[in-house]
Design a protein around this nucleic acid. Sequence first.
DNA 1: GTAACTGGTTACCTTTTGGAAACTACCCAG
DNA 2: CTGGGTAGTTTCCAAAAGGTAACCAGTTAC
Lengths: 119, 119
Amino acid sequence: MKKQASCNTTQQCRKRILAIRDAMEILSGKWKFHILGTLLLNDKMRFMDLLREVDGIAAKMLSKELHDMEMNQLITRRVLDTKPVTVEYELTEYGRSVEPIINEIAGWGMLYRKGVVVE
Amino acid sequence: MKKQASCNTTQQCRKRILAIRDAMEILSGKWKFHILGTLLLNDKMRFMDLLREVDGIAAKMLSKELHDMEMNQLITRRVLDTKPVTVEYELTEYGRSVEPIINEIAGWGMLYRKGVVVE
DNA sequence: GTAACTGGTTACCTTTTGGAAACTACCCAG
DNA sequence: CTGGGTAGTTTCCAAAAGGTAACCAGTTAC
């Protein structure tokens, strides 16, 4: 009896594959989950705050990632006319919807660290 | 009142950051979620089945990703001594624990596609 | 014996990602 | 008028990721 690949041909499955691909396109990279995770805990943050808080990130990467995420409607950028200009970054409602993913990933990573399931 | 970055210094937060970093190290890349997702639906699959099923992947990438995932205990590889040798790949219990992450990501991707939250 | 299937590997190349350091420009305090 | 803080951009480079195509070795069907 030939094991017939049944997924990938059904409509549901195709939709799922596309959904995963889309999500990864928006959320992939070394820093996005860290930036989003930080913004989930501190709801308004300035550029320099993020630079200090997101451990190890360079200004260039932070700038680029913030720009990408603004394009994808995950965050908003607001320039305040304070004496030294300050810029506030904040999650959109949409950006906050990433929280369950981050929680799952963090939970899974902790499972891995503890080696609970591994042998 | 200075907005003091409070995360990143607490023990819980550091653990969370490390967990996310670990998880992404194991699960990042263009193909892992697709391969895992396919294996979740068809519990035992041969190399050629996966090659046909995971849309667009090249043999080299599939080979490399399967090897990585075997190293990380997400899947098992078993060679059967059939006439043309066949190799079965199967998720470990640990590999199956990725399911909730995939579900969250797929769900989120569909939300994005529909544009429910975006304006 | 030759084509096609199994499960890969190898070589070569392009693109993407990410990092370091320097630089800009504006404002304020001393 | 110098140093430091704001928020970045620019340049230059190295490494990683990913793709194409060819190849290999064994088996079986024609």
